[in-house]
Design a protein around this nucleic acid. Structure first.
Lengths: 250, 250
DNA sequence: CGTGTGCTTGATGCGCGTCAATCGGTGTGG
DNA sequence: CCACACCGATTGACGCGCATCAAGCACACG
């Protein structure tokens, strides 16, 4: 089972191991070179496990850390005064959570694990110190945050101009391409979120999402059984969304 | 007319004068103290004038600078492949443009002056250098960018859950509070943008925006003649949007 | 085996987009 | 200085897409 590994002094179990993490080319490490990676490992707290549905933080938690998904998945949401919830993002392995809270005193949203999920933690105080010392890392932080702004703007366009079918297609394609980045199948995967979450995120009713799924299925564009989906005709899906194939979500 | 000023050596005309700018408590200077302000003044290029409708940058412009509105107003927008335009923000004096492009090679949107507008320019290369030296300024940049993410998320919620009336009310209240920050009237002002822009931004048809305006007017909630508006009943407007009184826009 | 929860399917109604016409203000040319 | 054209804003009539309400269905769990 255990495959042979190159001889590297085994890090102490609580010390980070970004070096050996398969996500290092997606996550923060990608911004910095080998020698500086140790600085990052010094501040990261590695791989705590959250159970399905468990809170990682919410809007009343003082903002102390950003988080990176290592395995599993997370949804973030905000709630308005009248109790309406709006899901603001789904996060897959290698993606960073908490950028919308940088510089604030409390988290700007609530984050919750969608399934059994492992998460690394970056204390912001140390992270900010580190980014003053490593200009490349600072640049990368700016880049990540600006991308989150762009994705949200793309989502705004999706919500204000596109039909239910276009929205669902865009989400499926976004998930597909994000899985492919990790060398996973982009055509056959399991949705981490419920129909309810999809509907909330896309500004639709659950029933509408369900109808779109069955319509796509009868058209032979996808095959879906519960959360298992297979994208049979990517071109058709991309045709539905004339644009924003992959840049719609975080 | 000219009021007596404290004797301060007059800065050379092209050298920045954040010191004397009335917006210094809204703009970047608010993050740093008196002594460091000179560093910021060294890199800023002050107050170029743009005519109504003039481009400040667009999506094919290499990203070199962030901009701060000094007077007037600006709209930013993105266009999808099929040519659909989506306005992503309206910017008033003291607000920073280009945060969605930080870390990229090109601007992520197009910016255009809505009226005769004066704009200060911050070259990003120098700005990034400066933020590594001034941790408070770096922190402030993170803060501004995270706020832009939050505002966009709020807008997502507005677009996916709220009616036309709620959206228009939210925009009016947002403008109102942003004007008040500058000690201007929050109840009587002139809209910098056309109905068309409002509609586009809020994901509505122009006709719908127009109808909402007249409906509000017959209810005695506002008074509007063209772009001149007066908010007669703030409480009623806030009642329409049960939430997000001021945080909906940049 | 019953209960709950998430998903699907059908019937109905409403909000808002669309199309079309008119109005008002502004700029232009005779 | 007026007549015309043009553009943004308004108002009305109509239809469609999706929300809503209401049942059924599938699967997991105690």
């Amino acid at each position: 089972m255990a495959q042979t590994l190159p001889f590297r002094p085994v890090p102490s179990p609580l010390k980070a191991s970004c070096h050996t993490c398969s996500l290092s080319n997606l996550c923060l490490p990608l911004a910095i070179d080998e020698t500086d990676l140790e600085s990052l490992e010094d501040i990261v707290q590695q791989g705590r496990i959250y159970k399905r549905g468990e809170h990682i933080f919410d809007q009343s938690t003082p903002f102390r850390s950003c988080f990176a998904v290592r395995s599993g998945s997370v949804k973030t949401s905000i709630v308005s005064e009248d109790g309406e919830e709006q899901i603001t993002g789904f996060f897959l392995p290698g993606e960073l959570i908490g950028l919308d809270s940088m510089g604030g005193d409390y988290y700007a949203c609530t984050a919750r694990a969608l399934e059994r999920t492992s998460i690394c933690e970056f204390p912001v105080q140390k992270l900010e110190e580190l980014t003053t010392r490593l200009p490349d890392l600072q640049h990368h932080m700016y880049h990540l945050m600006s991308q989150e702004i762009q994705h949200s703007h793309q989502l705004n366009m999706l919500l204000s101009k596109n039909t239910a079918e276009e929205r669902v297609a865009a989400l499926l394609l976004s998930l597909s391409s994000r899985l492919q980045r990790r060398r996973l199948s982009g055509t056959r995967f399991s949705l981490p979120m419920a129909r309810n979450d999809i509907a909330n995120f896309l500004g639709l009713a659950v029933e509408t999402v369900s109808r779109v799924f069955t319509r796509f299925q009868t058209q032979g564009v996808i095959k879906a059984r519960g959360r298992e989906v297979e994208l049979l005709d990517l071109a058709a899906l991309q045709g539905v969304t004339r644009e924003l194939s992959r840049q719609v979500c975080p």
